[in-house]
């Protein structure tokens, strides 16, 4: 043992993952604590039932603990967990609905969007926000999910491909089409407003 190890130094999640696999409950707790918000957020955007999502997350972690001996090393704990939760939510919604379409759950479609914000927006920006929100509202569940994963979670193509089970090319295509769709209804308004900014007073 090396006594000079600085215990306050943050440990990488991949290392925590290894410790958890070896049966370290404290490491497991730390992982759960760190990823809970992220999983909760993703889950709630996949399915709006808060209790259902919370149950799924709890089951997911309990199952991970039970299966810890069979889990492999991973360099992408975050992607692994997001994918696992996504599978879990689809699996459980299918089970609840007795084998109906797994895609029935609309991505964030019921989200109650409030324009009020702590971020200060002027009138013009508020109008744009409305337009963006409206544009997002016209997206399909898959399109919304990809925007969410790419821009809200900041994931790379490979990670999204892994989570959604699509080829990298399909992810790129889907994202491209989705962004074009958003732009069509939104960017026009934005461009106009930006031009106004630079008009001589």
């Amino acid at each position: 043992m090396n006594d000079t190890i600085n215990i306050s130094q943050p440990i990488s999640h991949e290392l925590l993952w290894d410790r958890f696999r070896a049966g370290d409950k404290e490491a497991f707790g730390k992982l759960a604590l760190h990823y809970y918000q992220l999983l909760y957020n993703y889950g709630l955007n996949l399915n709006h039932d808060e209790d259902f999502v919370s149950d799924c997350i709890q089951e997911l972690f309990l199952e991970l603990w039970e299966r810890r001996g069979f889990l492999s090393k991973t360099d992408f704990v975050k992607t692994y967990l997001l994918r696992a939760l996504r599978n879990k939510i689809f699996k459980e919604s299918i089970r609840l609905k007795r084998f109906q379409q797994p895609r029935e759950v609309p991505f964030a479609a019921e989200a109650d969007i409030s324009i009020e914000s702590r971020m200060v927006l002027n009138e013009e920006e508020t109008a744009q926000m409305r337009q963006l929100t409206a544009a997002l509202g016209t997206l399909t569940a898959r399109q919304q999910e990809i925007i969410y994963l790419r821009f809200y979670q900041g994931l790379e193509f490979d990670e999204i491909s892994h989570i959604m089970g699509l080829t990298r090319q399909s992810v790129a295509n889907l994202l491209h089409r989705t962004l074009r769709k958003i732009k069509e209804s939104w960017i026009v308004a934005l461009m106009v407003s930006v031009i106004f900014l630079f008009l001589p007073a």
């Binding site: 957020n41 969007i113 926000m129 997002l136 969410y148 809200y152």
Partner: peptide, 8 residues
Amino acid sequence: IGLHQRYQ
């Protein structure tokens, strides 16, 4: 801001 409001 828009995505934050929508997905938070």
